[in-house]
């Protein structure tokens, strides 16, 4: 008896979800965040509709503080795959001078990420947005549905979620309401890396260790990606061999010291790791329930 492996089952489930959205929603969009989860998600989207192209554009909400290598990778990838990419920046936020150094992580994330995402979804009238979130990332995500209904104001109501038995998704919604759809819900960080290795999926080089200019600040190693990061008294730039487990705005993303410069080394390092991947994310630490709060406010 032939059996599908764990990864084959996860792949088939994700493809099924992509097709359901394409068949049942009017104007879907793929939220492309350039990281490893997005890379896997994009790979699955290509598979789901092959030989057609995915019937939706990619949307990148650019906070203007992403690592430069991320933007290069994004543009190259989109070109290779021949896909349509929309880039949205919250120009009001830029005008107001909002940024992680000037405004702090909370305000920056709210204005440049959460509000910017809502602006973009409203601007184009998308009624379904794919995201690469996984339930194993964080406790409040563990209970989120695969099809997560958002009000016209983009709010998530954790107490009023639709049940999802079998592989049946209730995709009915009122005008203005939309879905956030998470085809990787049942994947773990390890699954993502195993799949990247198995399928040979390109990822941003920042995941691989190499000497990079970093500054020790508030217990994190922050890579100085451009000169907008001013050194505080007593700080200095060190050239350390580091890599990143998650990618976001460079001032808010802690590097880990590592020499893992190949996929097998990364996978081995992750298996032996004693910390969870989100430890490097500065925005999650505002309190145990802070991610849940952000989600209720409309954060992805």
């Amino acid at each position: 008896m032939i059996q599908l492996t764990h990864l084959q089952k996860l792949e088939a489930e994700a493809i099924h979800i992509f097709r359901e959205v394409a068949a049942e929603c009017e104007k879907p969009v793929f939220l492309y965040s350039i990281g490893k989860d997005s890379a896997v998600l994009l790979h699955l989207a290509m598979k789901a509709f092959y030989p057609s192209k995915p019937p939706f554009p990619l949307l990148h909400v650019d906070t203007t503080w992403k690592f430069r290598e991320m933007i290069e990778f994004r543009d190259q990838r989109v070109k290779e795959l021949g896909l349509e990419l929309l880039v949205h920046i919250n120009e009001e936020g830029v005008k107001a001078g909002v940024g992680p150094f000037a405004s702090g992580s909370r305000l920056h994330t709210d204005v440049m990420k959460t509000q910017a995402l809502k602006q973009a979804l409203d601007k184009y009238g998308f009624d379904a947005a794919f995201g690469g979130a996984r339930r194993d990332e964080e406790k409040s995500r563990a209970k989120e549905r695969i099809f997560s209904l958002r009000s016209a104001e983009h709010r998530w109501d954790p107490k009023n979620q639709r049940p999802e038995p079998w592989r049946l998704y209730n995709t009915r919604k009122r005008p203005g309401e939309s879905f956030r759809v998470f085809p990787l819900s049942n994947w773990t960080e390890a699954d993502v890396w195993d799949y990247i290795a198995k399928e040979n999926i390109p990822v941003v080089p920042l995941y691989f260790a190499k000497p990079r200019p970093v500054v020790r600040r508030d217990g994190s190693l922050i890579m100085r990606d451009d000169d907008r990061m001013e050194l505080r008294p007593g700080e200095s730039v060190e050239n350390l061999s580091v890599r990143f487990r998650t990618l976001g705005c460079y001032p808010l993303t802690g590097a880990v010291e590592s020499t893992a410069s190949t996929l097998p080394e990364i996978i081995a390092e992750m298996r032996n790791s004693k910390t969870s991947e989100r430890e490097g994310r500065i925005i999650d630490h505002d309190g145990s329930a802070s991610m849940e709060q952000k989600k209720q406010e409309g954060y992805f």
């Binding site: 059996q3 492996t5 195993d194 290795a197 040979n200 190949t262 996978i267 081995a268």
Partner: peptide, 19 residues
């Protein structure tokens, strides 16, 4: 599939594709 530029045999062993 061997990842590009990383033809280490360890890759196959470390990818655990389980039931």
């Amino acid at each position: 599939k061997e990842p590009a530029g990383a033809p280490a045999p360890a890759a196959a062993a470390s990818v655990q594709d389980k039931a």
